[in-house]
Design a protein around this nucleic acid. Structure first.
Lengths: 183, 183
DNA sequence: GACGATACGGAACGCCCGTTCCGGTTGTCA
DNA sequence: TGACAACCGGAACGGGCGTTCCGTATCGTC
């Protein structure tokens, strides 16, 4: 399926397209026209399609990278000595990072979005679940939520950030809500 | 500007368009094509434009009604004996109502959306601010947020509900977060 | 340096959708 | 009931955008 080795110019153009897409999608999300990405990359629209079967595929290629990063960061925290601290650090970090990148926001907001990016999406989900469970086990996080709930809350926090940027203290409201264990 | 009295068929068609728009926008938001609304109303596209200058204007006409309701409900609660209870009841009711109506969700999510619907938008905002301040005055709600923060949280809760419906307990997380007053 | 395969650019296609236009119809009022 | 204004339906217009196509240019190899 995959061409083993690309011609030099093809490899260069592919990289340019990816870089342009990363910037454009990151700033404006899927709404940015493909022609604009081609223009930013200094390339024709046809060239983009030589490397990616569709705009959607290009978008996912861009997002995939970051999701993998998220998954790795979460895995690195599994062994932390304080599960509560690890969980909340990660929770806030993900929101902060994602809120800087519209493409990530949109990818996370689609419940199906992370579904079929099988590898990275599953890794991310699994690592998040593990962090949550460990934090719940030591009583640092309320017990009445699960991984899906948590992802919903992340999406919600991203919506909050987009509605009123620079409001990190609003995420604290959610964090405090997650800490509540009584009742 | 406004025609004082419409012809009978015109009045009837206007009502049909509004009803169709309310249903269609409520279900799918601004994304629904105007032609579809016309079809649902049993009317030609031209007729819609006779009554509303643009699709956007029609959308706002639909939303306006509900926002006014919200404002009235909030005003009715100003005199409640328990400001904390009044606040949280209202907060959750707005989210529950809005989450059933995509049009309202989208209108609230646009920071500018409520801006120029001057009357109703301002009323709603003012009433919400008053409820919040009263609840904060008696220590029922943390003091480090203002009205804009609260609206951002509402938008966030709506995003949560859309991501994973039937999850009213997630709003509780936010509610509990708002209750936190220590530190 | 020449040849074949590979890749490129951007014009062209098809579709969707908001908006406008106009010939025909219907309500209103004398 | 007749005539005029108001109103209607839906075809047509225009712009945006994802995708495809193809003549041309470039790369890699002998």
């Amino acid at each position: 399926m995959e061409k083993a080795v690309l011609r030099a110019d093809a490899r260069r153009n592919r990289a340019r397209v990816l870089a342009a897409a990363e910037e454009a999608f990151g700033a404006d999300g899927l709404a940015v026209p493909l022609d604009e990405i081609a223009r930013l990359a200094g390339v024709g629209a046809g060239t983009v399609y030589r490397h990616f079967p569709s705009k959607e595929a290009l978008f996912q290629a861009v997002v995939l990278e970051r999701i993998e990063q998220f998954a790795q960061e979460a895995q690195a925290l599994q062994a932390a000595e304080d599960p509560g601290e690890a969980f909340f650090d990660y929770f806030q970090r993900v929101i902060r990072q994602a809120s800087l990148n519209r493409a990530i926001c949109e990818a996370l907001a689609e419940s199906t979005g992370l579904g079929f990016k099988a590898d990275a999406g599953n890794d991310f989900r699994a690592a998040l679940d593990a962090l949550l469970e460990r934090a719940q086990a030591v009583g640092a996080v309320r017990a009445d939520i699960d991984g899906d709930d948590l992802r919903a809350l992340i999406v919600g926090c991203l919506a909050v950030e987009r509605y009123s940027p620079d409001s990190r203290h609003l995420v604290r409201v959610v964090v405090d809500g997650l800490r509540v264990t009584g009742n």
